[in-house]
């Protein structure tokens, strides 16, 4: 079985800027994959190259085994992309836009599927409305719908929830999760790391056009993040703890691997005469992983 997406030794320059630098990545069919990185890391360039919107300088990309250049028709039939920009065609209604998009893929009688998408994305009542009349959130839903009209096995969502309300996020993720459960491969880029942590099985992090981390979400959390005792104290933190503790905004954070370590830590603090004002236990989170990976990549 060919991977859903294969990216081999891909590089791309825009003038003196190196947007992608020897990127190698393989995403298996059925994965919910996260592509994370700061602005300018190369995420959108990589997606654009995959979609045939940008031609790379070196390397190969394929979708479901079809090369995006030499076999572009098959590759594009298997790929649905939700672009990052909120774009729409002001001449048409929602339903017209979806029918036209279906036609581009050679699908004529697509009304049943269009109705299903509209229903699932909460757009059914606005199907006849002109695109100009929709709110930003509604336009974003139509973008998602347009990417799905040809039932692509691989769906790429480039920051689909940027600037949209909670209701749309929930509706969108419920629908996308159902598609993933039905076998669709999902590739997601987002700046909302909590979303990526909850949804993605595997994550790649990009910085300056290079993949700087690639692993399952669980492994990344295990490697780069840990539970931490977070406390605000009235006194000075004991010397033996300051080497492992970090301070931010008046809160000290002391990482630990096992809950058995909590009691000895508290004893050390109490013995040093340090009074605890507030205390909480922090869980490992992707934001910490992200920061550490990016800082690590920076120091390389």
């Amino acid at each position: 079985m060919s991977p859903a997406i294969r990216i081999e030794q891909v590089s791309k320059r825009f003038g003196s800027t190196r947007a992608l630098d020897n990127v190698d990545l393989e995403i298996e069919q059925g994965e919910f994959f996260g592509l994370l990185g700061p602005n300018g890391a190369g995420k959108t360039t990589l997606i654009s190259a995959l979609a045939g919107l940008v031609r790379v300088d070196t390397g190969n990309l394929s979708v479901m085994g079809y090369d995006v250049q030499s076999d572009y028709r098959a590759a594009r039939r298997h790929l649905g992309v939700v672009p990052q920009e909120l774009v729409f065609d002001p001449f048409f209604s929602v339903r017209e836009s979806l029918k036209i998009q279906s036609g581009y893929f050679g699908i004529g009688d697509n009304d049943d599927w269009i109705d299903e998408i509209l229903e699932n994305l909460g757009l059914a009542s606005r199907a006849g409305a002109n695109m100009r009349m929709l709110s930003g959130g509604m336009k974003r839903r139509v973008l998602v719908a347009q990417a799905l009209v040809h039932r692509p096995p691989v769906i790429v969502l480039d920051e689909p929830t940027a600037g949209v309300d909670v209701e749309l996020r929930q509706t969108l993720w419920q629908f996308i999760k159902r598609l993933n459960e039905a076998g669709h491969t999902i590739v997601l880029t987002t700046h909302y790391l909590e979303e990526a942590e909850n949804l993605c099985n595997r994550i790649a992090m990009l910085k300056d056009g290079r993949v700087v981390a690639l692993d399952t979400t669980k492994q990344l959390l295990r490697r780069f993040s840990a539970h931490a005792l977070r406390l605000r104290t009235g006194g000075v933190m004991p010397k033996e703890l300051t080497s492992e503790a970090t301070e931010s905004g008046g809160w000290w954070s002391i990482p630990f691997n096992s809950f058995d370590e909590i009691e000895p830590l508290l004893v050390k603090i109490r013995t040093a005469g340090c009074e605890i004002d507030s205390l909480e236990i922090g869980k490992p989170d992707l934001e910490e992983v992200f920061i550490r990976v990016m800082q690590g990549a920076h120091h390389e």
């Binding site: 992309v81 672009p83 729409f88 065609d89 347009q146």
Partner: peptide
């Protein structure tokens, strides 16, 4: 930017 709707399909 809606040129992508024409550039993404085959």
């Amino acid at each position: 930017g809606n040129i992508v709707f024409v550039l993404l399909p085959p």
